[in-house]
Write a protein that binds this DNA or RNA. Structure first.
Lengths: 360, 360
DNA sequence: TTGAAAGCGCTAACAG
DNA sequence: CTGTTAGCGCTTTCAA
């Protein structure tokens, strides 16, 4: 009576060795890049292994080398395309460096604390946290387990974790400059989840640069969430008192801005068209949908590829013991139709960039 | 001179045992659900483990149990939100069943063959292939390695692999019925990648149901790709000869349809508005963006949640040896503004249903 | 209920 | 260059 669950018969290094009448360790060496095996033996081994379908067991290897070549990627469950994109790139970059990605998704609304013990059981070489909050306690647990943690676009003050992020404060300041150059009178911020560092930093960077320029922040609308629906509702709120509309709106991220644009469109269809001037709209992220013809969203583009590369580099070339990386990469202005380019004269946005608006 | 890479000191079961003056195997038992340990010893062990930060090493466990509780999830690199959504759900469902997800992403344009050997080295309990083609040869390699393969929304004739998919043929037939009820004269199909089973099946289901109803397929436009841009260009092609426009278009998937809608909008702004009547537009998938106010895309919704659940069930409750699952789940019509609802009795449009178009 | 011992598949000394 | 030996951290008989 054989338990079928225990019947995963895959051939082992010993099987190959026996078939060839050589020692098991020689077989092992044939699969190690810089081990001393004669070319003939190696060739014979590889041929035999091929015909027997043998491949070294990565789990057994990890046990002895103490390095699993697995990275735990912990992510929230929001539907933000920016993070879907990031996830794909992480997977590809890591793969290319010989690492595997073990994916964990936090249930909606939860933080990732409950997941981490499991992640650690799989002996991951590092943990990357991707769009979900992590408690300081858990960061410490990783520290104790000697597993580096990399926070991607998340800040966690005082925690022993590496950080790779877009310069949210600086990016938001660019938006303030932009609105100033457009001579806007009623700059408005639509907030996402306000317990996130991205939201706080974008609001803060926006507000303080406006203040530096002597412009008061006209209004802040709480979206509550980084979603299309939240952006849509926020715009409705803003349009509720018709005589009192903003002339420039900075949304906490792109997908909210898309919702806002849609709400605005509907409103302008309803009201006598052209009754109030279209406000300038700017988002943050640089997701593909912003370039779609219906939106033509102006935005601050995060240097996603570079950010991912930076995070992966921390995994592949770990910094000296005890040293924490804190990378903050600058975002770039992308001008499309939703907010006109600023005039050249003042220290703000260059006009030549409006050429980049073409969608196809 | 200690090699720092080998210095991942995490406490082991032996450490805990020594600290408690008991045997290592007792510690092991404390972490197994139905092992015989006295409640007191277990409590003591768990407490000590907690304070030492000990957790069983999942890799070592896999080595002996011959089950890794890891599922390899192999995916293509397209930016289709439908698959991003599927990925998230897989991750959550598997997690909930105590399985981990090892993620592999095929480089753009490639099939997943090159990835599979690596996947197998990690001793995954199953492989799920998600939006990328898999060769029959590779499916066989998995078979030899005794690892079940589950193809998600992909067909592979003759291969020893389980299959979970939406009923593309049936769904496409629903679109044909719909267009017939609308009394369309020029039903058109915009194709995606034509080396995919999804594309073939949707075209075939559409065409043959049209034929059954005595309606000729008016035109097929090759998109080339399942992308927004491809849909956009296809629509431009269709609009190139103005007197000769289709009155109903079925796009191979949602995201192409969104591109098509945008191209159509632009065209109608340019041309004297209302010159030609808006064609009915229907997509396939049911992605969130289809519900956005700018699009209001009518579509065939894939039962994604059920499909994922079905695939995961194959992993958790494997069918008897040698038996292959072939699940085909029905899609559902979702009426929004881009294609009017068909009247129940007669082939005409009921106006009241356009009320369902509201987005929020 | 507990401990001792064997061994999963592999890598890494150490001899030869 | 190759074989022998000793474990990596764990589960699992088998006795006690």
């Amino acid at each position: 009576m054989t338990d079928s669950r225990h019947t995963r018969i895959r051939s082992t290094a010993r099987d190959v060795a026996q078939a060839l009448g050589i020692s098991q360790s020689t077989v092992s060496r044939a699969f190690t890049e810089d081990a001393s095996v004669s070319p003939q033996t190696r060739a014979a081994i590889l041929r035999m292994a091929g015909s027997m379908g043998y491949k070294p067991n990565a789990l057994a290897r990890s046990l002895i080398t103490n390095r699993s070549k697995i990275v735990g990627l912990v992510s929230g469950s929001g539907g933000n395309p920016f993070y879907a994109d990031a996830l794909q790139r992480f997977s590809q970059h890591l793969q290319q460096q010989g690492y595997q990605t073990l994916l964990f998704t936090a249930p909606a609304g939860h933080d990732v604390d409950a997941l981490l013990p499991v992640v650690l059981q799989y002996q991951v070489d590092a943990v990357i946290v991707l769009s979900a909050p992590l408690s300081a306690a858990m960061a410490e647990a990783c520290e104790r387990a000697n597993t580096p943690v990399i926070l991607f676009n998340r800040a966690l003050s005082g925690a022993k974790a590496h950080t790779v992020a877009c310069d949210n404060v600086g990016g938001a300041a660019l938006v303030a400059d932009w609105f100033a150059a457009l001579d806007c009178r009623r700059p408005t911020f639509v907030a996402g989840r306000d317990d996130t560092s991205t939201n706080r930093e974008r609001l803060q960077g926006f507000t303080s640069r406006l203040r530096e320029r002597g412009m008061p922040l006209w209004r802040v609308v709480a979206g509550g969430d980084f979603t299309y629906e939240a952006g849509y509702r926020a715009m409705q709120t803003l349009l509720a008192t018709p005589g009192d509309a903003p002339d420039a709106i900075f949304f906490a991220n792109d997908i909210m801005a898309l919702g806002g644009i849609d709400a605005l469109k509907l409103d302008q269809e309803t009201a006598a068209a052209g009754l109030h001037r279209r406000p300038a709209i700017v988002g943050f992220d640089g997701i593909a949908m912003g370039g779609w013809a219906s939106y033509q969203l102006s935005t601050i583009v995060q240097p996603l590829e570079e950010m991912v590369a930076a995070a992966v580099r921390i995994v592949t070339d770990p910094p000296p013991e005890g040293q924490l990386v804190e990378a903050k990469l600058p975002g770039k202005v992308l001008v499309r139709a939703s907010a006109p380019a600023a005039a050249p004269a003042r220290p703000s946005v260059s006009p030549e960039q409006s050429a980049r608006a073409a969608v196809l």
